[in-house]
Amino acid sequence: MSATAGRDGAERAGSVTDADRLTALRFAIGRPGWRVEALTTARGEAFLRITTTDQGTGAVRAWSVTRTREGLLVGDGTSGERLLAVPAMREALVEIWEATVGAAAD
């Protein structure tokens, strides 16, 4: 997957970057049941779908991470809710991890 960059190398809003994808893959390696997929919307905008599986119940949740002008937008694909915009992929992944761990603790 390659993100769209301008002449100055800046990434276009609406496309996650290769660096975003690699960061997500590295984060998912140590978490059983996590899967990272690089996908594209009908409008050609790249985003990440991250699925998590609860190791106790087997329940699967889907998340989306898209780049906006405000930062990376984390969306809960299961409920359809947008969680928040964060400035960096690591923060997006921590938000997903905390939501997953918090749901498993309930």
Rank of each mutant, 00 (worst) to 15 (best):
I96V: 06
V86W: 02
A13Y: 05
M1Q: 07
D54I: 09
R43G: 12
A38L: 07
G80Q: 09
R31C: 04
G102L: 09
G30V: 00
T23W: 01
M1A: 10
E37S: 08
A59R: 15
T41G: 13
G71L: 02
A3T: 13
T78F: 15
T51L: 03
L83N: 03
R31S: 03
L39Q: 15
A3N: 14
A42K: 15
T57V: 10
G56C: 14
R7K: 06
R43S: 15
A46V: 03
G71S: 03
G6I: 06
E70C: 01
S15Y: 14
S15I: 05
V36K: 02
I29L: 15
A88N: 01
L83K: 05
L84D: 05
F47N: 03
I96M: 13
A99D: 04
R12T: 11
G9V: 01
T52W: 08
L84F: 04
L83S: 03
F27Y: 13
L84I: 00
M1T: 07
T51C: 03
E91T: 01
A46P: 04
G77P: 08
L25F: 04
A62E: 10
A85F: 01
A42P: 12
E91C: 01
E95T: 03
E37G: 05
S64Y: 14
A46N: 05
R82P: 09
S79M: 08
T66A: 14
P87Y: 02
T53R: 15
I29Q: 15
G14S: 11
A59Q: 15
L93N: 02
G14E: 06
E37H: 12
A103Q: 10
M89Q: 05
G56W: 12
E37W: 10
T53P: 12
D20A: 00
L48S: 04
D76Q: 06
D106F: 08
V65G: 06
V74I: 06
A24K: 07
D106Q: 10
L39E: 14
G6K: 13
G102D: 09
T51N: 01
A92L: 05
R31H: 09
P32K: 11
D18R: 11
V74H: 01
M1E: 04
G77N: 12
M1G: 07
R12H: 12
E70L: 05
G6H: 13
A92Q: 04
D54S: 14
A24N: 02
A92H: 07
A10E: 10
R43H: 15
D8M: 13
S2Q: 15
G30K: 05
V94F: 06
R49N: 12
D54C: 13
Q55S: 14
G75S: 10
G102K: 11
A85D: 02
R43M: 12
T41N: 12
E11M: 09
R61G: 02
G102H: 10
E37P: 01
G44D: 10
M89F: 00
R35P: 02
A19V: 13
G44Y: 10
